[in-house]
């Protein structure tokens, strides 16, 4: 499978958009301008981009607490994302979800999720619905290495395989479950070793190489679309920043040298070098892309700043869906 020039730029653009959004979010958090928790995706861009680059607009994904990257990669709108991070009424979730629940169901992005491992069963449901309707859509569950220690993952993996559903399990193995290294929380090194236990193929790819991820994702997605059933892709990757927040060096649970080593294999810069070496891109062209997307980020921050906060009367809105069949007012006396 040779990756077209258009696709190379597409994957590159997805990665740069994620990097810029996350770096901007980090700066805003540092300036105390974002309420709540912030889990940055910087370093892992190749995974969301490589996988989402293999999906159609109407395919579904479930995400994690580190979910901005998945939404950006699925085509998320900077303005509405930034507004949501600031808790504004114009945000994706009207200020009711925030970073950990950011979503766009119209893009098939079924939410970041504050509960580790909870996205996989939901992706199984989406995959079930996709097959049920028979429109050839696929679901992808993004999850981290840590969430494969949770029952929900195992139930989801088993059910997906038992029902032979069109789903791809995309594991971002960044070697740490929050602040604890993987080797302390599981007796295996490769998450992919779990796949065989459920009866699905599993492969390891270099999660810092967007082409490697994309190649595997194209195969896995196509396999699911053609009725071949579930598969698992383990992308070995790394988060540059802390589990949450913006600190990256001087952390007690991982050595600075380790961070530096991974950064040498930066998914965006190494890919740019390769594109330039291959004569597909020039340094000027690449700089142009960064400049253009930087402008989008500035616009998004401005949009979010200018947006109003939701009013208190919105607290009780959207707890329930109004039902056409029920003439009762929903909610109870409080």
């Amino acid at each position: 499978m040779e990756i077209s020039t258009t696709k190379q730029f597409d994957l590159h653009r997805r990665m740069v958009r994620i990097r810029l959004f996350e770096e901007a979010a980090g700066r805003l958090a540092e300036a105390n301008r974002l309420p709540g928790f912030l889990h940055l995706y910087v370093g892992e861009e190749a995974v969301a981009s490589g996988v989402c680059g293999a999906l159609n607009d109407d395919d579904h994904i479930t995400s994690t607490h580190r979910g901005h990257g998945h939404l950006v990669a699925k085509g998320g709108d900077f303005n509405r994302m930034m507004a949501e991070l600031m808790g504004k009424a114009t945000g994706y979730c009207k200020g009711k979800g925030g970073s950990m629940h950011i979503s766009d169901t119209s893009l098939g992005m079924l939410g970041a999720n504050g509960i580790v491992g909870a996205g996989s069963p939901i992706a199984v449901g989406a995959a079930f619905a996709n097959r049920y309707r028979g429109r050839g859509q696929v679901a992808v569950a993004f999850f981290g290495d840590g969430s494969t220690n949770i029952g929900a993952f195992h139930e989801a993996a088993n059910m997906a395989c038992a029902l032979h559903l069109p789903i791809v399990f995309a594991c971002e193995n960044n070697e740490y479950g929050e602040f604890t290294p993987r080797h302390k929380t599981m007796a295996i090194t490769d998450i992919v070793d779990r796949a065989a236990g459920y009866g699905m193929p599993g492969v390891i790819v270099d999660g810092m190489d967007v082409i490697a991820v994309h190649e595997a994702a194209v195969e896995a997605v196509e396999r699911a679309r053609q009725g071949g059933g579930p598969s698992l892709i383990e992308a070995k990757t790394y988060r540059y920043y802390n589990h949450h927040g913006i600190q990256n060096l001087g952390l007690k649970y991982r050595p600075d040298e380790e961070v530096a080593t991974w950064k040498q294999r930066d998914p965006i810069f190494t890919f740019e070098d390769r594109m330039i070496e291959n004569g597909v891109a020039t340094r000027e062209k690449v700089d142009e892309i960064w400049a253009e997307l930087r402008q989008d980020i500035e616009t998004a921050i401005q949009f979010a700043d200018d947006s109003p906060y939701p009013t208190p009367d919105q607290i009780m809105v959207d707890v329930y869906t109004k039902s056409s069949t029920s003439n009762t007012t929903v909610g109870t006396k409080s």
């Binding site: 079924l110 069963p121 939901i122 449901g125 079930f128 619905a129 029952g151 929900a152």
Partner: peptide
Amino acid sequence: SEQAIVGLGVGASVTGL
């Protein structure tokens, strides 16, 4: 698999079933 059973319902309903 009770978590996956309810998850199946969540995922299928949020995508239209």
